[in-house]
Simulated scan of single mutants.
Amino acid sequence: MTGAPTVVFLAADGTGGPRSASVAATVTAVLVLGWRLRARRHVPHAVLGALLATACAAVALWTGQARGFFLLPMAFPAAATAACLLSLAADRPLAGLVANRVVGGPPEWRSHRVLHRFYAVSTVGIALVSSASLAAQVALYRWSDVAWLGLLHVFMGPLWAAVTALSLLLARRTVTGERDAAGAGGLTR
């Protein structure tokens, strides 16, 4: 459902240009929001999705180009890459700041060599995926390849869900492995 406004935008752009595509994407975003509100499913995500799709449509209208629809979403991998790199430079890997709490890791994870290294490597991996996504989007934007931009945009949601799930699974496994290795005395340092 989250990719519906993008798919509708692409289809409408092919037949009526960026103006009709922007209107169609906005209407689709509002319909998806209404459906999710009625079903009480993922309401915060639905609101954010509708706002983002509407903002993307507004940018496409403002630029007068269909590729403008994808300008705002390019900010997300740019911000993720920057956040990961800054967190590594501060010796506070972003993956640890987020995932450790979710998986029930120790509050002092930074002082545990294995956990700190795992979270640093995870943060580097997230930064690489983010920067690769950004590079692909920038290249497709410069080539004005709206169809491939749309396809990439639609598939990035499931890709990020998979990266997040894998990161959390591996983090939980690492925390559990450290607890098991240390026995009742706590995690090794």
Results as ranks from 00 to 15, higher is better:
4 A>M: 13
4 A>P: 04
7 V>I: 15
8 V>I: 13
11 A>L: 15
17 G>K: 08
18 P>A: 15
18 P>Y: 09
19 R>I: 02
19 R>P: 00
21 A>G: 06
21 A>H: 04
22 S>M: 02
22 S>F: 01
23 V>N: 00
23 V>E: 00
23 V>P: 00
23 V>A: 13
24 A>P: 06
24 A>N: 03
26 T>G: 11
26 T>L: 04
27 V>S: 03
28 T>K: 03
31 L>Y: 06
34 G>N: 07
34 G>E: 08
35 W>S: 04
35 W>D: 01
38 R>Y: 15
41 R>P: 00
44 P>V: 02
45 H>V: 14
45 H>M: 13
46 A>K: 03
48 L>Y: 03
49 G>Y: 05
50 A>T: 03
52 L>W: 10
53 A>N: 08
54 T>E: 02
55 A>H: 06
56 C>E: 09
60 A>N: 09
63 T>H: 05
63 T>F: 05
63 T>G: 05
65 Q>E: 15
68 G>V: 02
69 F>I: 06
69 F>Y: 15
71 L>E: 09
73 P>N: 06
75 A>T: 14
76 F>Q: 07
76 F>L: 14
78 A>V: 07
80 A>Y: 08
80 A>I: 12
83 A>I: 05
85 L>Y: 05
87 S>Y: 08
87 S>D: 09
91 D>C: 00
93 P>R: 05
93 P>I: 03
96 G>F: 04
96 G>Y: 08
97 L>R: 14
97 L>C: 06
97 L>Y: 00
97 L>E: 15
104 G>W: 10
105 G>S: 08
106 P>W: 07
107 P>I: 01
107 P>K: 08
107 P>D: 15
108 E>S: 14
109 W>F: 11
109 W>G: 10
109 W>K: 10
112 H>Y: 07
112 H>C: 10
113 R>V: 15
114 V>N: 00
116 H>G: 02
117 R>E: 14
118 F>E: 06
121 V>G: 00
123 T>I: 07
124 V>L: 13
124 V>P: 07
124 V>N: 10
125 G>M: 12
131 S>M: 07
132 A>H: 02
133 S>L: 14
134 L>I: 10
135 A>W: 01
136 A>T: 09
140 L>P: 03
140 L>H: 02
140 L>K: 02
140 L>F: 07
152 L>T: 07
153 H>K: 11
154 V>S: 04
157 G>W: 12
159 L>Y: 01
160 W>F: 14
162 A>T: 14
162 A>I: 13
167 S>G: 12
170 L>V: 13
171 A>E: 00
172 R>Y: 11
172 R>W: 13
173 R>S: 11
174 T>Y: 02
176 T>H: 13
176 T>K: 15
177 G>S: 08
179 R>S: 07
179 R>K: 13
180 D>P: 00
181 A>K: 13
181 A>Y: 13
182 A>F: 12
182 A>L: 12
182 A>T: 12
182 A>Y: 14
183 G>A: 09
184 A>L: 11
186 G>H: 12
186 G>Q: 11
188 T>Y: 08
